[in-house]
Nucleic acid binder design. Structure first.
Lengths: 257, 257
DNA sequence: TTAATTTCTGTGAAAAAATAACATAAAAAT
DNA sequence: ATTTTTATGTTATTTTTTCACAGAAATTAA
């Protein structure tokens, strides 16, 4: 699985991580005895892997921190927009006026935020971009969890975030895992974010997981909720009978969109 | 401040938001009676605004959507923009690498956020839009204060915000008052926001106030800092000798841009 | 080991796209 | 009404990218 230019591409990745951008000229200077075509091909391959975005004269970092397992899949996740919308639409029916609602960070939840009805709701979220989206409406009260922000997924975590969550009441929580499976439950790739999600799951009266099919059968290091701990799973995935059986045993209502 | 092609660029933004990418060919088909040069220029302008990233043959969404911010601020942000920029430019010289910096919410501070150098800084802010702006850079660590968000000025406040501020150390704080005068000091119009600002002023080693001339001689109900409590005042206002005398007595360095 | 196969790299021509510079039209300001 | 500014169009030039093919290097199989 390793190949000849891997080391070179690692170096390019590093530059990309540090500077956010790399130009062909730089690379040509850095690797004087390679043809620019080879370096072009490197950028191309990095783009195919979702690490870089080619721009004129070079490439930019895709913004994904590829040192963690979690984000390796995130470029793929970006593509499932249609599924995310359907999931969000379905999720909408579980939102009741006047309730206290937690919205996790993530692109699927962002779709939900966009179509949220403009009614009296108390929203709590760990995503600053989601908070701002909801502020477009007039009626919901928006509470933003504070803490350190992960620039890769615009998610807030850390000790403050954790304390915040522990001090509030949540009727219904919409959670967005990065991975999900029957055995390992719903997981993410970052410990501090796991802590926050875990705390939310414990506090919420009802937990609804929004998961598009790209997440299925991926497991990430930190499980924030087992099947037993959630109430509803909304997904576009075609679950196999084994999964559905496990869900049924755990008392989870599975909704396929 | 609105300009001719704005509507067209809104459409392009929308495409970008939906598809994540847009190609010049598409745009040429969509706007058949415009030259491709104009459309190129649109993409360029969208890139300059941080909304898009140019790629060969088109542009990709930068992933950061601050439409809502723009909408909320569209009017206010344009007022005195020139002065705000000059103030921000001046403020920049008081930011040192590696320090813990508090950035208040507000449009003047937003201008500062935009031109912040991409260096190792620990940023604490009460403005979610400011946090997102800074996340465009690679190096600063961004801490966002949590709490309830005021949809009029995108500022976070409340008990959680207050606790957060009380638990952190701040080297230098950049504050944006809504009103300022020699007698009443620097003030704002909302009690919970006052509480947070007050806490910041007490904790910060150095307090720098950024105030454009439209704020001068306005007093609002809640004074979060008296002249004595601040270190530097940066403004485009033409202060009268009485004000300058009061500032001098209070040991405030007044910088007029 | 050699031979076969695959992967990686180099070259240069052709195509595509981006830029720059200048001209004109439209809009805004005075 | 005029000046000034902003937006757009046109064209030529430069730069970058793509493409197709050939040779080198590495890997695998025999």
């Amino acid at each position: 699985m390793k190949s000849v230019g891997d080391e070179r591409r690692e170096i390019i990745k590093k530059i990309l991580r540090e500077n956010g951008v790399v130009y062909l000229k730089e690379l040509e200077a850095l690797f004087p005895d390679l043809s620019s075509m080879t370096l072009r091909r490197d950028l191309e391959s990095l783009e195919k892997d979702g690490f870089a975005i080619k721009i004129r004269g070079g490439a930019r970092s895709s913004g994904i921190d590829f040192t963690s397992t979690e984000q390796i899949y995130s470029h793929r996740a970006q593509q499932n927009l249609d599924a995310k919308r359907k999931i969000a639409q379905k999720a909408l029916s579980y939102i009741e006026t006047g309730r206290s609602v937690f919205l996790d960070s993530g692109t699927t939840v962002m779709e939900l935020a966009k179509i949220l009805p403009d009614v009296n709701l108390s929203i709590l979220t760990s995503g600053p971009n989601i908070a701002i989206e909801i502020l477009k409406k007039y009626n919901p009260t928006v509470n933003l969890i504070g803490g350190i922000i992960n620039r890769n997924n615009l998610s807030v975590s850390g000790a403050h975030a954790l304390n915040f969550v522990k001090s509030v009441n949540i009727d219904v929580a919409f959670m967005a895992p990065v991975g999900g499976s029957a055995e390992d439950g719903f997981s993410c790739g970052n410990y501090t974010e796991y802590e926050v999600k875990r705390a939310v799951v414990k506090k919420a009266n009802k937990v609804i997981v929004l998961m598009d099919s790209s997440k299925l059968s991926h497991s990430l290091p930190f499980t924030f909720a087992s099947l037993k701990e959630i109430d509803i799973l909304i997904s576009d995935a075609r679950f196999d009978s084994e999964f559905l059986k496990a869900a049924k045993n755990a008392g989870v209502e599975v909704i396929m969109v």
